[in-house]
Design a protein around this nucleic acid. Structure first.
Length: 116
DNA sequence: TACGTGACCGATA
DNA sequence: CTATCGGCCACGT
C-alpha cells in the first residue's frame, strides 16, 4: 500500500466520534490539495484495512453522503452516522459545519504526519 | 502499453 | 445563479 493511502487511513482513524471531515480537507492536510479523488479511491479499499477505518465519517465538502453505496447497503453509512449522534436528511448531514473536523487545525504535524 | 474511470474540488463562463 | 472543465494519480481493461 502506498504511503499516501496509509496516511489517509491514519488521518481518518483520528476523527473523533460524532465528527466528520471531507475528502478535500484530508488531501490538503497530506500536502496534495488537488488529490482529493485519491482520498476517495483510498476509501474504496478502506474496509479491508486493519485496524478499522471509520470511512463513514468522511464525506464530500457539502456534507453529502456520496459514497454510501460502497458500504454494502444504501442506508448503512447513514445509520452509522446517526448512531454517533449525527443527523442525516436526504443523504445530507444536518449542521455539517458544526460537526466538521478539520485535520489541518485539529491534528498537529508530527513524526506520523511529516510536514511537506 | 494506452486509455478511461472515479466515494472530489476549485476556478471560470 | 447553474454548468462545465481541468487537475490529481492509482487501477483495471
Amino acid at each position: 500500500m502506498s504511503d499516501f493511502n496509509e496516511n489517509v487511513y491514519d488521518v481518518v482513524r483520528q476523527i473523533p466520534v460524532g465528527r466528520v471531515t471531507s475528502y478535500g480537507a484530508i488531501a490538503r492536510f497530506l500536502g496534495s490539495p488537488q488529490s482529493s479523488r485519491m482520498v476517495g479511491w483510498a476509501m474504496n479499499n478502506a474496509h479491508n484495512q486493519q485496524p478499522y477505518v471509520p470511512a463513514h465519517r468522511v464525506v464530500n465538502r457539502q456534507g453529502l453522503l456520496t459514497g454510501k453505496v460502497h458500504f454494502g447497503g444504501p442506508d448503512v453509512m447513514q445509520q452509522l452516522l446517526e448512531s454517533e449522534g449525527i443527523k442525516v436528511v436526504d443523504d445530507q448531514i444536518v449542521d455539517f459545519q458544526k460537526h466538521f473536523w478539520d485535520p489541518m487545525k485539529e491534528l498537529p504535524f508530527d513524526e506520523t504526519f511529516p510536514m511537506p
